[in-house]
């Protein structure tokens, strides 16, 4: 009996003494941290995807607090809503940014772009790209091993077995840019979502001369410049036999789509049949990645 009382007493005294020591140690070595970092972090999505360019959400919060201009910080996952909340926490202003989405700029489907050899190695685009140009005659297009799919943390990109190309789910895509970095061929680009998700873009990255590009793929951009001539807004430039549409200048007139001889220019999410100019209901929104024509 005495033994147990003694034990309890000793442990209690020891515990109390160590608690006091720990208190002073903690006080002495306390790390001063801006409490606003915690507040900002609470507003962030917590995906730790790195899409903002920081190591994770907490690093981003710290960068927001320390930065003088919030315009340089942007969380692509949370978008404008989150940035407004962050600005409110910090008592600052932030301008809204156009929401973006990942766009696959290759239409080299199995039908358009015949396979000329067989790849039997490890299924990874980076490994494949390090070995050779790919199993089709186009050395620029999608390799089809799905590196973009495996890096996407939001399940927003999937391979379409029918075409052999990745398809982006616009609802889920947060424009974090992970797929853009993962693609060894730089096929994927972040583009502005556009008015009612309507976008016009050149679905090709082939820089070969017209004849070679056409021979490799039926849907290749041949650099004929017809689209650039027809564009009333000077949104299209042709460089190295490849047309590019500047999404900030494009007014979605679709004149280039009609002009393109190979169908390399895609217009997505336009209403199927041009109806009376009513606001487009959700039902009329087409599936992503399908051409209008």
């Amino acid at each position: 009996m005495t033994l147990s009382i003694l034990t309890i007493a000793i442990l209690t005294v020891l515990g109390a003494a160590l608690a006091v020591v720990l208190y002073f140690v903690a006080e002495k070595f306390k790390v001063e941290e801006d409490p606003r970092i915690d507040d900002v972090e609470k507003e962030l999505p917590g995906a730790n995807c790195g899409g903002c360019g920081q190591a994770g959400c907490r690093a981003f919060a710290q960068a927001c607090v320390e930065s003088e201009d919030l315009g340089k910080c942007f969380c692509p996952v949370g978008g404008n809503d989150v940035m407004q909340k962050v600005a409110a926490v910090l008592g600052r202003e932030v301008a809204a940014k156009e929401p973006q989405v990942a766009v696959v700029r290759c239409n080299g489907t199995c039908e358009n772009r015949p396979r000329i050899n067989e790849y039997g190695g490890y299924q990874s685009c980076r490994v494949k790209a390090a070995l050779y140009s790919g199993d089709t005659a186009c050395p620029f297009g999608c390799l089809g091993c799905g590196d973009c799919v495996s890096v996407c943390q939001f399940g927003a990109i999937a391979m379409d077995p029918a075409t052999g190309l990745p398809v982006v789910d616009e609802e889920k895509c947060t424009a974090c840019g992970a797929c853009v970095k993962a693609c060894p061929k730089n096929v994927i680009e972040l583009r502005n979502k556009g008015r009612r998700n309507m976008r016009v873009y050149v679905s090709c990255v082939n820089k070969d001369k017209g004849a070679a590009a056409r021979k490799a793929c039926k849907a290749a951009c041949i650099g004929c410049s017809k689209c650039a001539k027809v564009c009333p807004f000077e949104a299209i430039t042709v460089e190295n036999n490849l047309a590019y549409i500047d999404y900030t200048k494009c007014k979605l007139c679709k004149k280039c789509v009609a002009e393109c001889p190979t169908g390399a220019i895609h217009a997505v999410n336009f209403p199927v049949i041009a109806p009376k100019p009513a606001p487009a209901p959700a039902a009329e929104v087409e599936k992503p990645k399908t051409s209008e024509e």
């Binding site: 190695g121 490890y122 990874s124 980076r126 490994v127 390090a130």
Partner: peptide, 12 residues
């Protein structure tokens, strides 16, 4: 296992 394939990329 495609040892060299993945190691080569990492080495780079």
């Amino acid at each position: 296992i495609p040892l060299l394939d993945v190691i080569r990329i990492a080495k780079g």
